[in-house]
């Protein structure tokens, strides 16, 4: 349970960090048609942007919480569980932002949800076996 709560907080920090970073980098201008030296310059210019710093701070919080979760549970449990962020993105897009979500994306979100259920169940099953012995 505590692992789930910490992972949820980590995902919230990651989502906030990604939004800040993408907003900050967008403020630095679009990099779609530039070569590698210009991209490096863009990354360096991004370091002077406070929104980018806020994003990096939130990603630092994500890293810390992710590391704490890894100290409690196996990587093969924690990593698939982080994919719940993709499901939240789809749900927020549909219900909060009222975006049109194509069926393939709903199917993807459903598969991720099922996958996380399978992984969580696999984590709980041995504990039940031990208790019944």
């Amino acid at each position: 349970m505590k692992t789930a709560v910490v992972l949820l907080l980590a995902l919230l920090a990651e989502a906030g960090g990604n939004v800040c970073l993408s907003q900050g980098m967008r403020e630095m201008s679009a990099a779609s048609q530039v070569g590698s030296p210009a991209i490096v310059a863009l990354l360096l210019r991004g370091l002077a942007n406070p929104t980018v710093w806020l994003g990096m701070g939130l990603l630092g919080v994500f890293f810390g919480l992710y590391a704490v979760a890894l100290s409690w549970a196996d990587l093969s449990v924690v990593l698939p569980a982080t994919a719940v962020g993709y499901v939240l993105n789809v749900a927020c897009g549909a219900y909060v932002l009222h975006e049109a979500v194509p069926p393939a994306r709903w199917a993807g979100a459903l598969l991720i949800g099922l996958g996380i259920c399978c992984v969580s169940w696999s984590e709980m099953r041995p504990a039940r076996t031990v208790r019944t012995r």
Partner: peptide
Amino acid sequence: GTVLVGLGVALLAL
């Protein structure tokens, strides 16, 4: 579960 998560993430990008 892991394979389902991987497939789901791939589907999201369609």
